[in-house]
Simulated scan of single mutants.
Amino acid sequence: MEEAKEIVSASAVRAAHEVRVVVGRLRRRFRETYDNEGLTPSQTSVLSRLGKEGPASASALAAAERVRPQSMAATLAVLEERGLIQRRPDPGDGRRQLISVSEAGRAFLEDKRRAGEEWLARALQEHYTEEERRTVLEALALLDRLTRS
């Protein structure tokens, strides 16, 4: 027996589309607000992933970033040359190395995060009233509920 499909309201479909579009635009604006210090988007992505998820092997990073191992090796070589990552033997498998963010890499990520937040705070201050900022906070609380369900 086939289950009855729940009908999704037009407002839910529109809201889903608008949230996706706005989040995409915000991500692009955040990327524009900070100096990548010459890093490519893929190098920045790997560094951010290591900062969020912790140490990983090169093969795990290649799979997560959906690139070939050779491409990941080149990305990691640049990050290591810049002092943004460090390698150490995997305690569970001495043949593998785990890659993690170095102190310089953490400082880079923190500067990037801070620059984005400063841009957003200034933009919210300049373009929105206090009441509109409260509305934004209320809407974000509703959206946050999605991430917790």
Rank of each mutant, 00 (worst) to 15 (best):
K112Q: 04
E117W: 15
A58K: 02
F108V: 01
A58L: 02
S42Q: 14
M72K: 08
L39C: 04
A56Q: 13
S48G: 11
G51W: 03
R25T: 03
P69E: 10
G116R: 07
R66F: 02
Q86T: 09
G24S: 07
S59R: 09
V22D: 10
L109D: 01
T40R: 06
Q97L: 15
G94N: 05
L79T: 04
E117P: 15
P91Q: 03
G105K: 05
A73N: 14
E118W: 02
P55F: 00
E53C: 15
P89Y: 04
A15K: 12
N36D: 06
T40Q: 06
R66V: 04
A73Y: 03
R20W: 14
V13W: 09
R113E: 05
A60P: 00
A16P: 10
R68E: 09
G105N: 06
T75C: 13
P69L: 03
T33E: 12
D111C: 07
A63H: 12
R95M: 14
K52A: 10
V23W: 14
E65A: 04
L84N: 01
R31E: 07
E103G: 13
S42V: 14
V46N: 00
A15G: 10
D35N: 10
V101I: 14
T40I: 04
S45Y: 11
R82W: 02
V67Y: 03
V23Y: 11
I99T: 09
V67E: 07
G24Y: 11
L61T: 06
D90G: 13
A62I: 01
T75F: 12
R114L: 11
A62V: 00
R114F: 10
A64D: 06
E65W: 05
E65S: 06
R49W: 12
Q86I: 06
E80P: 00
P91N: 05
L61M: 04
T75S: 11
R14F: 12
L98C: 11
P69F: 01
E117L: 15
I85F: 00
G116P: 02
P91M: 01
S59E: 09
Q70N: 12
V21C: 07
A77R: 14
A121V: 06
V101T: 11
N36R: 10
I85G: 00
V78L: 10
D93L: 03
A104Q: 11
V67T: 10
A15N: 15
R114Y: 09
E53W: 09
S57C: 08
R49Q: 12
A12H: 09
P89M: 10
A56K: 11
A16I: 15
D35V: 06
